[in-house]
Amino acid sequence: MTVIEVHGLHKVFRVYRKPESSWERLVATFRPRAAEVEAVKSIDLAVERGETLAFIGPNGAGKSTTIKMLTGILHPTAGTASVLGLTPWKERQRLAFRIGSVFGQKSQLWLHLPPVDTFNLLARIYELDEADYRKRRAELVELFELEEIMYTPARKLSLGQRMRCEIAASLLHRPEILFLDEPTIGLDPVAKGAIRDLIRRANREEGVTVFLTSHDAGDIEQLCRRVVIINHGQVIHDGSVNALKRDYMKEREIDLKLGTPFDGELNLPGVRVIKAKGYGLKLAVDTSAAPIEATLGSLLRECAVQDIAISMPPMERIIAALYQGKEAAG
């Protein structure tokens, strides 16, 4: 069953330019100079119930604008969208009862009050029955391991603890779709892992459709089965995460700090030197040519490694590779 259906969704923003001189400011009072920015250009998309979809792209690609149109916050300039059979910007409040949203950079918790107060407030806002709410809250507190922090003022919680509360709060009314806008932003790797695990469980155990935007390739790889890549307001890729991993996310970057300066000799399969300067060495490893464990083992044996960090290539590089691949194919 299709829960999100989008046709030709388009959003143009008017950006007003600030005049420099006093005369220009006076003129602009009566005739403001506005430039039009096409944030989203004719997007078509369909999402099935229970899917976990990563909606990704670089900064300014139009991800958040699309999410805001799908949740009824923004009115589109053109196009149609149906979310759970409702037109979001016309039936915002009705839709809000059936969806949940987490904006990684905005908090719905009341900072000076403990999370339990925000939960109580949300129960009233979503008009939940008291008994049903108490049962649901107990479930989420157990699932998200919130017992110890439910009565601590939100301002005293760590970012990871706050995000656990945010996601639990957004699931309180049993939404059918969960919109997550950068839910792991600013979190350490342990907290990221915990948040991903919770989102995965909400999807698997409760059948919640997950619509996620993130800059973190790890979120996409570990959470989603389908990925839609958007750039300059247009969909440039729509396919499975497995295919994307196979074709474009197979590289890992390894940052090394060595005990002796790098001598320029490194002969390992699938390993390419990105940068070498003094004691620092940055490598790109093609994991399809050699497993990462084997490469790491060889590096530890052959080099005097003092420190090591492994990361996914940034989203911008994946998109650049994707463009190159399409151009080569075309």
Partner: peptide, 29 residues
């Protein structure tokens, strides 16, 4: 899960919603 369709009950649920917002704001303040 959402409010009942009975108009009287719906009214009270909406009234309690905003009353709770006010109460939480009072506690925060």
């Amino acid at each position: 899960m959402t409010a009942s369709a009975v108009p009287g009950r719906r009214f009270w649920r909406i009234a309690r919603k905003y009353a709770e917002v006010g109460r939480i704001a009072l506690r925060s303040s």
